[in-house]
């Protein structure tokens, strides 16, 4: 029975892969979309967090703590099912991009904040004493230096995000895990298909973790210099 399943999986392999690859593209779409939403939110809130306004501080604190302490699946269900019940309907893919983006933004806020704080205060003070406005100081002086520090964290965040998008299958976004579920229902080749799925996720995440390692090495070299 079991060896039969493996040979059946082998015979079906081209069809399985073709179906799963459409899912791979959707996984990449959701990951990239959510990554940019997170990036934008992270930058904005990190700027708020390092500003001198106490109100902006409080808003950022609440955003970060709320989104980091609640499972992303719950957030996704609030956006997809919850909002739909009060008349705001999203398609699965935009809902997933929004959900993972909002969640990721909270993480990146902390990443950017620690990156900004790692830059010596003297740099900001020097820019201010030259008469640079605050936002310009952030943009021209602090962020370019902080970017080298945060790049490895960004790569690691992208890996986490890529894997997290598998949860979008729960709101029927047609990404890799969802395609896998459809195929399993059709063929009953559970183990075989999920091993294939694991390998496809690995193919996407291993280059990213290689990138993270290179960026980490570069950041470490920069610190020593």
């Amino acid at each position: 029975m079991t060896s039969d399943a493996w040979s059946r999986a082998l015979a079906l392999l081209p069809d399985l892969l073709a179906a799963l690859l459409t899912g791979v593209w959707m996984t990449i779409t959701v990951t990239v979309g959510a990554f940019f939403v997170s990036l934008a939110l992270g930058l904005v809130f990190a700027a708020c967090r390092t500003s001198s306004s106490r109100v902006l501080h409080a808003i950022t604190y609440v955003y970060v703590e709320l989104f980091r302490a609640v499972p992303v699946l719950t957030q996704l269900f609030i956006i997809y099912f919850g909002l739909a019940a009060i008349g705001i309907r999203f398609n699965p893919v935009p809902a997933a991009i929004l959900g993972f983006g909002l969640n990721g933004g909270a993480y990146l806020t902390e990443v950017f904040r620690s990156g900004i704080l790692a830059i010596h205060r003297g740099q900001t003070e020097a820019a201010m004493s030259l008469g640079m406005p605050r936002l310009m100081t952030l943009r021209v002086i602090v962020l370019p230096q902080a970017s080298r520090i945060v790049l490895p964290s960004l790569a690691n965040f992208a890996i986490g995000l890529l894997k997290e998008t598998s949860l979008a299958s729960a709101v029927a976004a047609p990404e890799l895990s969802f395609q896998a579920k459809l195929l399993v229902d059709k063929t009953f080749l559970t183990t075989q298909i999920y091993i294939l799925v694991a390998m496809l996720y690995l193919c996407m995440s291993l280059p990213l973790s290689q990138l993270a390692r290179i960026l980490e090495r570069r950041a470490a070299r920069g610190r020593r210099a």
Partner: peptide, 10 residues
């Protein structure tokens, strides 16, 4: 390199 969900299903 693989999602929790995949391991859970396996």
């Amino acid at each position: 390199g693989t999602p929790t969900l995949t391991l859970l299903f396996l």
